[in-house]
Design a protein around this nucleic acid. Structure first.
Lengths: 196, 196
DNA sequence: GTCTATAATTAGATAGAC
DNA sequence: GTCTATCTAATTATAGAC
């Protein structure tokens, strides 16, 4: 977290987090050294400790910020009353948000085991909160009879896993547009949960 | 006791790989030291180098063996002629195989970036081969008119991501049996790809 | 085959000059 | 705020005794 408001802290602090995010995503938290991050920013290693008490906190702050942004962006969305429309909104939102932040997403899924226990627990609760958003939609549709699911929690995890998987292969330089991808996944999600 | 030469090699080698697999899955390749692996096996660190030229090769061998086993197990399966039955077979096979090997699966997905380029390329080809198995089934169903998919490759990746996600939450101690889980996922996969 | 000992390198983090 | 210098500890891998 930025703790100083000096003229440099406004610029070096964010650059440290940006460099750490890029390098952690590319090479893994445990593999990246503080010296590598410093070199990427263009300072010496000691200077990093003006912006984070230690490496572990730097990782946690990145992951926490990502989840906070995810929940804030979701909260800013209108959620349709009709379950099918609400599900479409969630699906498209999830794909867009994740494709916009490949590095943060990668870290969020890969580096959980490098967190200390209290840090892990905090993030797990945020993840569960997000999962709850989808579960609420699926429950409403189940009650209304438009969805047919044996287990709401398993279904929500299955859908989220499917959607998040898009980040492992999608490239803007590829043949499919983001709109194409949204549409393809949405049709699969729609059918997967539908009552027949 | 007879001479020890040879008599340990048949047992220490596998124990090294087992310990490495467990520790890599739990703590991550980069975090685990050769000394930790050695301690888990019950030898000194130097002794490990009788069984692997270096740490990187130890990781690669684990991942390669996992993919070889996956393809061999799949090849040993009967593949139904009817696309719907073939898809059900693939789905249940994938879930069973992955739930049986949580550590190997975890490593296979998390440690790809810790491989050198030629090692990575080898595994990527094996992964693509496995993906091709599902693509062939989906293509056959598409041609037969029983599946309706906009993009076979994207669909196969979506299905595999959804199914593999089961390993992140399923525990034998939980409320659902493996048969329950297979059934829940199968119903979602079946509907997701179906022509309406 | 395994041990002890060690070489060579690198890590995270801190102290104090400027 | 950043730098240089440094401390302490840990790392991979190897050499040679047994």
């Amino acid at each position: 977290m930025a703790r100083t408001q000096g003229s440099y802290s406004g610029t070096t602090g964010p650059r440290v987090r940006k460099a750490a995010q890029k390098l952690f995503a590319r090479n893994g938290y445990a593999t990246v050294s503080m010296r590598q991050i410093a070199a990427d920013v263009g300072v010496q290693a000691g200077a990093l400790y003006n912006y984070t008490p230690d490496k572990q906190t730097l990782l946690f702050d990145l992951m926490k910020q990502h989840m906070d942004e995810l929940l804030a962006a979701r909260a800013a969305q209108d959620v349709a009353q009709v379950p099918l429309a609400a599900l479409e909104g969630f699906t498209r939102f999830h794909i867009r948000f994740h494709l916009d932040r490949p590095d943060a997403v990668f870290i969020a899924y890969m580096e959980l085991r490098n967190l200390t226990e209290p840090h892990f627990e905090q993030l797990e609760q945020l993840r569960a909160t997000y999962e709850g958003e989808l579960m609420a939609i699926l429950s409403a549709g189940q009650v209304a009879g438009v969805f047919d699911l044996r287990d709401i929690k398993v279904a929500s995890r299955a859908v989220i896993a499917m959607l998040t998987g898009v980040t492992t292969w999608y490239r803007d330089s590829g043949a499919l547009s983001r709109e194409d991808v949204e549409e393809i996944y949405w049709q699969m999600v729609r059918k997967a949960v539908a009552a027949t």
